[in-house]
Design a protein around this nucleic acid. Structure first.
Length: 806
RNA sequence: GCGAGCGUGGCGGAAUGGCAGACGCGAUAGACUUAGGAUCUAUUGUCCUUGGCGUGCAGGUUCAAGUCCUGUCGCUCGCACCA
């Protein structure tokens, strides 16, 4: 069989017959199967893409054959830095390179032979898509969920852009691997922290990998504690007090100093003239350090005295105010109370800087080394003495509440989502700045704010759009006077945070999506993609869905009911595929040689789907061989009239149907293929043993081809047709296991004596435990193995094993 | 440091607490063949082979542990002074 030829043939037939077109009105419960949309990079599809799209497609095809009305769309996440970086390097405009890449990629995706319904395709960089991304921004803005603030942000010197915390990997830019530095800039943010509690609460009910759920929980990082307000000894200008967040208010009596982050807004004003030089030098040094350097655990706990004192609200003690870089401006209030005896970091700082160490918690188990960071019993704490930490920390906060010097508070580690990018190739932020009216959102009727084609995107620290007069110069929608347009673009994660809503109604020019359609088609029933998006795309999508739900656009508030992560296909050398390593396995040559179905089968068979693993050339050859074995059998019997009545392999056939039907929905492709191989082995044995019925073999093969069709679509379609199938195999119902064929007269039991396997005996199938025990003890083999010993106890596991204890 | 996950033949990997190693690769032998890197058949965890030992290591629970529990070592990923 010429695989390339039959694959082309069937793809053409499928496309022409509309067999892959989603029909809302078709019968069956809807099933929205979605793979994370691809980024159109210049490189060709590699085996990793296939692993994601090909195998998820097999799942989708299986669901369709099992009566579900499957919707499987595809589109392109087309904005982003790589295209712009490529443009800077080569001068090819991002739109041109992206269009070209999409053309290639779409061709390759079509060659895969998936049942994707291409009529719902979109690309996020097209105006008819990003118009609605801008609309989404406006909805968040109107509802107070998008705001601007000046904040220390991660800045990538190479990309010349701000990137989100979530996109910093090992202190380096996720995309270009350049060391990230910190910089103060005015940025747009989405108030995802407002949704921290909802995002956290929704996690448990999701059918997602446990690992991913835990990662999101940790990322949100809820901690229950309280706020403590330290009044300054004397107010400095408008500043009267310093608020700190703590989870250990029970240690408040042990506070010997207070620390501000070097970036804390109070620092400049608070510092006394005598300390000014030292503090300014320290702040400057801290700003030069990357977050990685600052947060290194091995680093000394340095700090500088501000010259000011504040008052511990619980006991009136006067304590010094320091600045130290171990205190982070982005967490809590940007200030901490120093409890040298009961916090590891504070202890190290106190030792280094000669602070007083005051013990206020005693261990309950005699563990008395300092720092003592566990819970215990309060001492040296006035009226709280003798209280347990857990009670004490609430009691102390409640006491502070009375004088408005604190109270219980929940804090989250997660920070707001920074969405501004000083880049060209993204959706423009639909905002206008007017001297008279201030910050004005672009009216919805004026959308889209179109990204101009002709701009200079050479990086020079300024947004490329800021350099385009035609773009920035505009009139204020309110007063009509000249105004300036926002020149930053949106993080591409904004584009991909809502795309799953667009697919069902992808060409709607009246709205981002039709409410009714979306409520019918969503949530996504099965979402397949990489685990690396746990705390980015997957979190953002949940956030946006919850926002749109709360604004009344959606009936549901979780976008992805079920989530499956595919593993990573590594290079043959066991390392992650990368251009620099030169170990990328491109799909095209493999398809050329073995065909797309063989590639799919090997990706299914060779790996645990969620684990992935190193590529092996031998593996794909073995799958091609397996297909040849089936093809040869089909060639022998294709002209027979199928006859099911012989029944010689009915057990093996139904076992195979049963197991494959169980495995595919669980993405257990490797075992599903193994069961098919077993059936083929059984067929060969049946044939080679002589006296076989070709008509019966044809019946078995016809069934096998249907069972296998989702896994090797072109191949099985061809065999189905060769054996006389008139319609597409994918319109056939999936074979059902006939349980009655799995009933056998006898079962072989393993017999253990004192839990060691001694012999095997054959008993009738379905006997009761008591009868099995009785029959076993009467069995001559068992009697001789027992050698006269008296059984004390007999344990029977039905249809499996008998353990005789003597 | 914290959190999560994973350690099974020469290799990829199977095993609702119930016969460890399914299925495949590789290897060995045979058949067919002018030929074989095709195909078919058989064998293939290991050893001192009437049997013993084997799922990183050490314990524990159980009639029974790759699976559950405790500890430990190693690897991978995530977070990284989280107050």
């Amino acid at each position: 069989m010429d695989h390339n030829e039959i694959e082309k043939k069937w793809q053409k037939i499928w496309n022409g017959s509309g067999v892959n077109t989603f029909d809302e009105t078709a019968g069956g419960e809807k099933c929205y199967v979605l793979e994370m949309l691809p980024y159109p990079s210049g490189a060709k599809l590699h085996t990793g893409h296939w692993y994601n799209y090909g195998l998820a497609d097999s799942y989708a095809r299986f669901m369709r054959m099992n009566g579900r009305n499957v919707f499987q769309p595809m589109g392109f996440d087309a904005f982003g830095l790589p295209a712009e970086n490529y443009a800077i390097k080569t001068g090819v405009h991002p739109k041109d390179s992206t269009d070209a890449n999409i053309a290639t990629m779409e061709r390759q995706l079509r060659d895969m032979g998936t049942m994707v319904d291409w009529s719902h395709e979109f690309r996020t960089c097209a105006t008819d898509y990003y118009k609605w991304t801008q609309w989404l921004f406006l909805q968040l803005y109107k509802n107070g969920l998008a705001y601007q603030k000046k904040a220390p942000v991660n800045y990538c010197p190479s990309c010349q852009t701000v990137i989100a915390n979530e996109q910093v990997v090992d202190g380096k830019c996720e995309r270009c691997k350049t060391e990230v530095v910190r910089k103060e800039m005015t940025q747009w943010f989405f108030r995802i922290t407002d949704y921290a509690e909802k995002l956290l609460a929704g996690i448990d009910a999701l059918d997602w990998p446990e690992k991913t759920k835990v990662m999101q929980k940790n990322w949100i990082g809820k901690s229950v504690g309280g706020e403590v307000i330290f009044d300054l000894e004397k107010p400095v200008g408008d500043i009267k007090s310093i608020a700190v967040f703590t989870t250990r208010a029970d240690t408040l009596f042990g506070v010997t100093y207070v620390v501000l982050a070097p970036e804390h807004p109070y620092v400049k004003e608070l510092v006394t003239p005598e300390q000014k030089t030292a503090v300014e030098a320290y702040v400057l040094a801290a700003s030069k350090q990357s977050e990685i350097e600052r947060t290194s655990t091995s680093k000394d706990k340095t700090g500088v005295f501000t010259g000011r004192y504040c008052i511990n609200p619980i006991n009136g003690e006067k304590v010094p105010v320091y600045i130290a870089d171990y205190c982070l401006a982005t967490y809590g209030t940007g200030a901490v109370m120093g409890v040298a005896a009961h916090d590891t970091r504070d202890h190290a700082f106190a030792l280094k800087n000669g602070m007083t160490i005051k013990r206020v918690i005693n261990g309950e188990n005699g563990n008395d080394d300092l720092p003592f960071t566990e819970y215990g019993v309060m001492i040296n704490s006035g009226k709280f003495d003798g209280m347990k930490s857990a009670d004490g920390k609430l009691a102390v906060l409640d006491e502070l509440q009375k004088t408005a010097h604190g109270g219980r508070k929940v804090n989250y580690r997660m920070r707001d989502w920074s969405v501004s990018r000083q880049r060209y190739w993204g959706a423009p932020i639909p905002v206008i700045y007017c001297e008279h009216c201030g910050t004005v959102p672009v009216p919805e009727k004026d959308l889209p704010v179109t990204l101009p084609y002709a701009v200079n995107f050479t990086p020079d620290g300024k947004s490329p759009l800021a350099k385009s007069k035609e773009f920035t110069e505009c009139v204020c929608p309110i007063c009509g006077k000249p105004a300036r347009r926002e020149s930053d673009t949106l993080d591409t994660f904004v584009c991909s945070s809502w795309y799953y809503l667009r697919y069902p109604d992808a060409h709607n020019d009246k709205a981002a999506f039709d409410k009714d359609t979306v409520n019918k088609m969503l949530p996504v029933d099965c979402y397949v993609g990489g685990a690396e998006h746990a705390c980015t795309h997957l979190l953002y999508s949940r956030f946006i869905t919850k926002v749109l739900h709360d604004l009344g656009y959606l009936d549901f508030d979780e976008p992805f009911k079920r989530l499956v992560h595919q593993g990573v296909i590594l290079g043959p050398d066991g390392y992650r595929m990368s251009k620099t390593r030169g170990n990328v396995i491109s799909a095209d040559p493999l398809i050329e040689k073995y065909g797309s179905d063989a590639l799919r089968l090997y990706l299914m068979f060779g790996f645990d789907y969620t684990e992935g693993g190193p590529w092996s050339d031998g593996g794909i050859a073995s799958c091609a061989k397996f297909m040849d074995r089936i093809e040869r059998l089909v060639a022998e019997v294709k002209d027979e009239t199928a006859d099911a009545s012989v029944g010689a392999l009915d057990y093996e056939l139904n076992r195979c149907i049963k197991e494959v039907t169980k495995d595919i929905p669980e993405f257990g492709f490797n075992t599903a293929v193994a069961r098919l191989m077993e059936l083929v082995n059984a067929l060969y044995k049946y044939r080679n043993d002589g006296g076989y019925s070709a008509a019966y073999m044809k019946y078995v093969l016809q069934t096998l081809v249907k069972v296998m069709a989702p896994l090797a679509p072109h191949f099985c379609e061809e065999l189905h047709s060769l054996m006389g199938g008139k319609k597409s195999v994918f319109t056939e119902p999936y074979p059902k296991c006939d349980e009655s064929k799995l009933v056998r007269a006898t079962t072989e039991y393993a017999v253990q004596i004192n839990s060691k396997i001694k012999c095997k005996i054959v008993l009738p199938q379905g006997v009761s435990r008591d009868d099995a025990a009785k029959l076993a003890l009467e069995n001559p083999d068992v009697i001789s193995t027992l050698g006269g010993a008296t059984p004390k106890k007999v344990i029977v596991i039905p249809e499996r094993l008998i353990n005789i204890i003597i």
